[in-house]
Design a protein around this nucleic acid. Structure first.
Length: 271
DNA sequence: GTCCAGGCATGCA
DNA sequence: TGCATGCATGGA
């Protein structure tokens, strides 16, 4: 990867395996919107970003400082996806998925945002998940630039009531969000320390949270806590698992989450 | 009208 | 441990 700074933009050359639409709109993050010019805009870690592909290069409307402190890790740019995908391709189903859809990356999102988002995701569809999160951000996030709001922190959400979340469309998940916000805001749970735990300890800590089961825990660990070996199983992945009666193939080992995201996308389009 | 969506808590055996 | 049931909401 070659990084250059040009006026108010960062230009990236030689980035392998990054398809913006696949990565930003594949159900792992819920706050990215495609613009009329084909670029993508969104907010993460309290920062706004517009990113587009121009030929073989990517152009990010951001500063070098924000690129280094947020977006470099957010897009997982220091991981060798080409090599990993080459290995995952040993599995024929992943290989056929990659022929259709190449360029999915696992985004390293904020743990708090990922956890709340995937609590909302349960027994829900992606369009509705996006709507609920957008209303929460509009209601109590900070407006970073016109119309784009940060994801509110735990203290802010803790000030809301269960009924407030229900009014924003969260349904029965409102009580889960409220209780989690209280736990994090009070310091009873420290998500950043969970991020430093072993996978087993981190998973146990998340499963202890009201409203967090094995699926939500695995999604949060994969998308928000950088455990790329997690393999979330939802209703779509249950259908995919019928193709693996003997368990997951050896070539997934260590990168189950990346394989999972290809299979998830394949399932939603083909099953 | 019914069914479904990136499921979980609860009660019961 | 495993299984049945209720749960909010909106689009198909």
């Amino acid at each position: 990867m070659i990084i250059r700074q040009s006026e108010n933009e960062i230009i990236l050359d030689e980035v392998k395996c990054l398809d913006l639409a696949l990565t930003l709109d594949c159900g792992q993050a819920f706050r990215w919107e495609e613009q009329e010019d084909g670029s993508w805009s969104g907010v993460a870690f309290g920062k706004f970003l517009n990113i587009r592909k121009d030929g073989e290069r990517f152009i990010l409307k951001t500063t070098l400082e924000d690129f280094e402190s947020v977006w470099r890790n957010y897009f997982d740019l220091d991981r060798d996806y080409a090599a990993i995908c080459e290995r995952l391709r040993q599995d024929p189903l992943v290989a056929s998925a990659m022929e259709e859809y190449y360029g999915i990356r696992i985004l390293n999102q904020d743990p708090w945002e990922a956890l709340v988002s995937f609590i909302i995701s349960q027994q829900n569809n992606i369009k509705r998940i996006k709507g609920i999160i957008k209303r929460i951000c509009r209601a109590c996030g900070n407006e970073i630039c016109d119309g784009w709001y940060s994801f509110p922190d735990a203290a802010t959400l803790s000030a809301l009531s269960v009924e407030d979340f229900e009014a924003m469309g969260a349904g029965y998940r409102g009580k889960y969000i409220k209780r989690l916000a209280d736990l994090v805001a009070s310091g009873e749970i420290d998500l950043n320390s969970i991020k430093k735990m072993s996978l087993g300890d981190a998973k146990a800590a998340l499963l202890n949270i009201y409203g967090v089961g094995i699926k939500v825990a695995n999604c949060a660990l994969l998308f928000g806590f950088q455990f790329v070996e997690c393999f979330p199983v939802d209703v779509w992945m249950k259908r995919v698992l019928e193709y693996y009666p003997n368990g997951l193939p050896e070539c997934f080992k260590g990168y189950e989450g990346i394989a999972q995201q290809y299979l998830f996308h394949w399932a939603r389009n083909n099953l």
